[in-house]
Computed example of a mutant assay.
Amino acid sequence: MRWKDKRESDNIEDRRGMGAAPRLGGGKIGLGTIAIALLAWWLFDINPMQILGMVGNGPQQVQHVPASKVAPDDEMGRFVSVVLADTEDVWGELFRQQGKTYQAPTLVLFSGRTPTACGQGSAAMGPFYCPLDSKVYIDLDFYRTLHTQLGAPGDFAQAYVIAHEIGHHVQNQLGISDKVRQLRSKMGEAEGNALSVRQELQADCLAGVWAHHADRARSLLEAGDLEEGLNAASRIGDDNLQRSAGQAVVPDSFTHGTSEQRVRWFRRGFDTGQMQQCDTFAAASL
């Protein structure tokens, strides 16, 4: 990616060093546990920490954490800041074209654990978006796991992860997330999972829309970058994660979509660059 010397976002909270927890690459958390967490990290209406057994089932007491608005001075921190800034530019313009105002989210860099409005966040969860405070949370050690354990190396694979979470923020801004939560509260588990798949695939498609406009407007992508993103989408499909964890593939348990579906919808957003093409809820088939 051609990301160096580009604008960095001001919407960064750097909490790194303020907490501690077992690291994904440190041998204390196995691939099976990671896969289970990955199946939950991008859901809006549950706390993945309950799956990992690191929090109780009761309401979460959220502490106030002073935000550090100092720009990250390490390379990975700057990379994340540039990608976030680019999503601000793309979605700000696309919302403006629709007569809407895009309210940019905050991205929180943390290490170990950190409180959020959605409960206690942990490195073991991977990146996630909390709709209650409109913040994306990332422990940058996750990118090592993405490369070494999930087989998805490359800077554009890392950018895709951020863009997917921003896709959830776009859904939240458009009121889609609230509608999904309301519908899921009236559904059984299998129906709710199927609806969640459509929500997650839409976030993949919106990530592709961002990449389309970022490349067209600022030539962000280099040769091989798109393939890195598609590979990352494939590696975190529900079917692939279940196989990687040594589990049977159970379609009714899918919450994010198969590898093929995730690749297809990310590619659709990238090829068209149109939000209207990301209506997974109206699609007859995924």
Rank of each mutant, 00 (worst) to 15 (best):
G19L: 00
N240W: 09
A282N: 11
S259C: 01
A245M: 10
C130S: 07
Q63M: 12
L38W: 08
I34M: 15
G167D: 07
T33R: 14
M18N: 13
D14L: 10
R78N: 10
E189G: 01
R2N: 15
S177F: 01
N240P: 01
V170A: 03
R268L: 12
D89H: 12
R23H: 07
V108R: 09
L221I: 11
T258G: 11
L94C: 01
M18G: 13
E75W: 04
L174D: 10
G56L: 03
F281T: 01
A40T: 10
D238F: 06
I29P: 04
S259M: 03
L226N: 04
T280Y: 08
G257P: 08
V70C: 08
D14F: 09
R243M: 06
A124R: 06
R23Q: 15
G208K: 10
G237M: 07
P105Q: 02
I36P: 00
A284P: 15
L226H: 03
Q120F: 08
R235K: 15
D5M: 02
A124D: 00
F281G: 01
F142Q: 08
F156I: 01
S219F: 04
W210E: 09
Y129R: 06
E228H: 01
E165G: 13
E93H: 10
D155G: 05
Y129L: 04
K100P: 00
D86E: 15
T87C: 15
F44R: 12
T255E: 01
R268A: 09
A163T: 14
L109W: 03
M187S: 02
D239P: 11
F270T: 07
R243G: 02
A159K: 05
A217Q: 14
F110Q: 02
T272N: 02
F110V: 05
V161R: 01
G56N: 06
C130M: 07
S111N: 09
L150W: 07
M275S: 05
A232H: 13
D10V: 11
Y137Q: 02
F128S: 06
V136Y: 04
R23F: 08
H168Q: 11
L38H: 06
G154Y: 00
I29A: 09
D133C: 01
D74W: 12
E191L: 10
D74K: 05
Y102P: 08
Y143C: 02
K4T: 08
R7W: 12
C278P: 12
V65M: 14
Y129H: 07
V170N: 02
P48Q: 07
L241Y: 00
A284Y: 00
D141M: 02
M275A: 09
M49L: 13
A211F: 14
G26Y: 04
V250D: 13
Q120S: 06
I166P: 05
L183Y: 09
Q60E: 15
H64A: 12
V180H: 03
L109A: 10
R267L: 14
A123H: 02
I34Q: 15
D178A: 15
P153K: 09
I166E: 00
T280A: 09
S185D: 14
L226Q: 03
P127S: 03
G154D: 08
M18L: 13
I138F: 07
W42I: 13
S68N: 15
A152K: 05
A20G: 11
V80I: 15
S122L: 10
H169V: 03
V62W: 01
L107P: 00
D271I: 02
V82Q: 03
R113W: 08
